[in-house]
Amino acid sequence: MWRSVASNALTLFIALFLMAGGLLLWAKRQYEGPGPLAEPICLRVEPGASMAVISRELEGQRAISNATIFRLGAKYSEKSGLLKAGSFLVPPRASMEEIVDIVTRGGRSTCGTELNFRIGVVSAQLQLREVDPATGRYVEVLAFDPAGGEIPEDYAALRAAQDLRFRVTLAEGVTSWQVVEELKAADFLEGAVVDLPAEGSLAPDSYEVQPGMARGDLIAEMQRRQAVILGELWERRADGLPITTPEEALILASIVEKETGVPDERGRVASVFVNRLRQGIRLQTDPTVIYGVTLGKEPLGRGIRQSELRRATPWNTYVIDGLPPTPIANPGRASIEAALNPDDTDFLFFVADGTGGHAFARTLAEHNRNVARWRQIEAEQRGQGQ
């Protein structure tokens, strides 16, 4: 009898073991396999939320098949305590494993509503935008110049939304004075910037900020990022450049930044200035003349006068030899890269070609022909009222 009982118990144990193994295998497939979500959703994770709360919400939105498996999988992978607050885009058919990674990896939010304060070269703009889950792209809801005096009626209500995120974006080529002045209109920041940051020391980039952040702290983060970028690219610079310090690289990069907005041209533009520096030819670049007139405090808003081309300022490269003493704007990574790794050319000149880009030349005669063509294009545009 005991032998029969033992045999039955062993059989039952084996059956239970196999059932448990099968259950674990099924749960693993549920956790790692494609999920039931048919359309993308924007998942909001509130500060202090738990995996239990998120699992129930995901189950309610039919993004996962089983909240318990989701919680156990997050716990087994040791990610239960890594949940990040924010708004996250969950794509169709995302597995539970993928969703856990999305809400725990950190970084910027990937969907929801965002107020982006964009500081451009000419003006600043407050942009209220939200991500369309179907496309993953931002859709602009509202945009206005905060310094223009005309604030939309619905701005206050939209500004008070609980899930609103805040961002400050610097365009390439803005000056430090512009950044400090424009940040005064960012009503979600606090405090004053005591000292004007050195020209060129701010990284054109996108910065996610918290309401109430000190403007000085944001400036410090902009400076930190630019220092990291410059240090990284300086270490990978080309050999034999006629610049000897990272500071000179920043100056050259700022000139490249202001001379062209065409990404593919940066390396060629940089090569012209590098070739001129090597041969001891003055740079003769208009943006440096403009900076000597405005000191970066506002766009010139008109053409350069002949008297300004002849005026002796520390930045007027028609008058001085070599590089000016400081950058003339805050260059982006691509322009710094171009200054430190320019194209290998023998160009010494360039002029606008009427398409938004430039015509490059090796000789003065060739350059003069390019200039004549540009003058003809300018005359035709004036005649057409452009």
Rank of each mutant, 00 (worst) to 15 (best):
M1A: 09
W2T: 08
W2V: 07
N8I: 15
I14G: 04
I14Y: 11
F17D: 09
M19D: 03
L24W: 13
L25T: 01
Y31V: 04
G35D: 03
S50Y: 03
V53E: 12
S55R: 00
G60K: 13
N66H: 05
N66G: 02
A67Q: 08
E78P: 01
K84T: 00
G86K: 05
G86R: 10
S87D: 09
L89I: 09
R93L: 15
E98I: 02
R105M: 02
R105K: 12
T113N: 10
T113Y: 13
I119A: 13
V121D: 01
L126G: 10
L128T: 09
E130K: 12
D132M: 07
A134G: 05
R137A: 11
F144H: 01
D154H: 14
A156E: 12
L158M: 13
D163V: 08
E172F: 14
E172R: 14
W177D: 12
W177C: 04
E181V: 03
L183T: 03
L183V: 04
D195L: 11
L196M: 15
L202M: 15
P204N: 12
V209M: 07
Q210R: 15
G216F: 04
Q223C: 10
R225T: 14
Q226V: 03
A227C: 06
V228I: 14
G231A: 09
R237G: 09
A238T: 00
D239E: 15
T244S: 15
E247H: 14
E248Y: 09
E248A: 12
E257C: 06
V262C: 03
V262G: 00
D264S: 15
G267P: 04
V269N: 11
V274D: 08
N275W: 10
R276Q: 06
R278G: 11
I281D: 08
L283T: 02
T285E: 10
T288G: 05
V289A: 08
R305E: 06
Q306W: 06
E308C: 03
E308A: 05
R311V: 00
R311F: 00
A312D: 15
W315R: 04
T317D: 01
D321E: 13
I336W: 03
F349S: 01
F350I: 09
V351W: 04
F360S: 01
F360M: 07
R362H: 12
T363M: 05
E366M: 04
R373P: 05
R373M: 06
I377A: 06
